[in-house]
Amino acid sequence: MADQIGLVALHRIDSANPQKRERHSFDFVVNGASLFEATQAIKYDMCGSLSNPLFEREIAQRVNQRTAAMLTSDVPIGGHRVALFVCPECGDVACGAITARVSRTERGVQWSDFAYENGFDAASKLDLGPFEFEWAAYLSEIERAKAD
């Protein structure tokens, strides 16, 4: 049986002390469990790599198309690493990111090898997954994040 994926709104509240920008993004929910919580992305003050176009239309238009492609159509044979949760201020992996290996399978797509990465230290593996999603349902859910 395939794992189930959903996108759920994720809201980061702004603050003047320390300076924090409000962000509206998406959490990935797998089989009813939040990956934001399971990866402890909140500990690193991260947001989802997909912006919520209902609140952040300009950011979603700039970023979501590329991120959605990395999660779907641009997945190479053997897969590649994709940032799922990123720095809410700049989205740069150098600030730290929760990533997963995304690879195509016969049935759809698999997320595995979850890790915390920052681009210069060795990745810290997370005890999570792998998850395998049926292609049509997965594609439909990821496409919801795209801004028109």
Score class of each variant (00 low, 15 high):
residue 34 S to W: 07
residue 49 S to I: 12
residue 141 E to A: 00
residue 106 E to N: 04
residue 105 T to V: 05
residue 7 L to A: 02
residue 8 V to C: 08
residue 95 C to Q: 03
residue 96 G to Y: 04
residue 69 A to R: 13
residue 78 G to P: 00
residue 118 N to F: 07
residue 140 S to F: 06
residue 38 A to W: 00
residue 49 S to A: 15
residue 138 Y to I: 00
residue 39 T to L: 03
residue 65 Q to T: 05
residue 40 Q to W: 13
residue 9 A to K: 11
residue 112 S to P: 03
residue 117 E to R: 12
residue 22 E to D: 08
residue 134 E to T: 14
residue 140 S to N: 13
residue 29 V to E: 10
residue 98 I to K: 04
residue 29 V to Y: 12
residue 58 E to P: 02
residue 24 H to P: 06
residue 13 I to E: 13
residue 127 D to W: 07
residue 15 S to Y: 05
residue 78 G to R: 03
residue 99 T to E: 13
residue 105 T to F: 02
residue 138 Y to W: 15
residue 120 F to D: 05
residue 148 D to K: 13
residue 56 E to Y: 09
residue 36 F to D: 00
residue 116 Y to V: 11
residue 142 I to A: 02
residue 130 P to Y: 06
residue 56 E to T: 08
residue 89 E to G: 14
residue 43 K to D: 07
residue 66 R to N: 10
residue 126 L to H: 14
residue 6 G to A: 14
residue 49 S to V: 08
residue 96 G to M: 00
residue 119 G to S: 04
residue 33 A to Y: 07
residue 102 V to H: 07
residue 68 A to V: 15
residue 89 E to V: 05
residue 89 E to Y: 10
residue 94 A to Q: 10
residue 16 A to C: 04
residue 57 R to Y: 14
residue 20 K to V: 11
residue 16 A to Q: 13
residue 81 R to S: 11
residue 105 T to H: 08
residue 146 K to E: 10
residue 119 G to N: 05
residue 74 D to E: 15
residue 82 V to R: 02
residue 127 D to L: 13
residue 131 F to V: 01
residue 136 A to M: 11
residue 103 S to L: 10
residue 124 S to T: 14
residue 15 S to K: 04
residue 102 V to N: 11
residue 114 F to S: 01
residue 55 F to T: 01
residue 113 D to S: 15
residue 29 V to D: 01
residue 49 S to N: 14
residue 70 M to H: 15
residue 53 P to A: 00
residue 53 P to T: 01
residue 50 L to C: 04
residue 142 I to S: 06
residue 88 P to Y: 10
residue 137 A to L: 11
residue 14 D to L: 02
residue 108 G to R: 06
residue 13 I to Q: 14
residue 69 A to P: 00
residue 130 P to E: 03
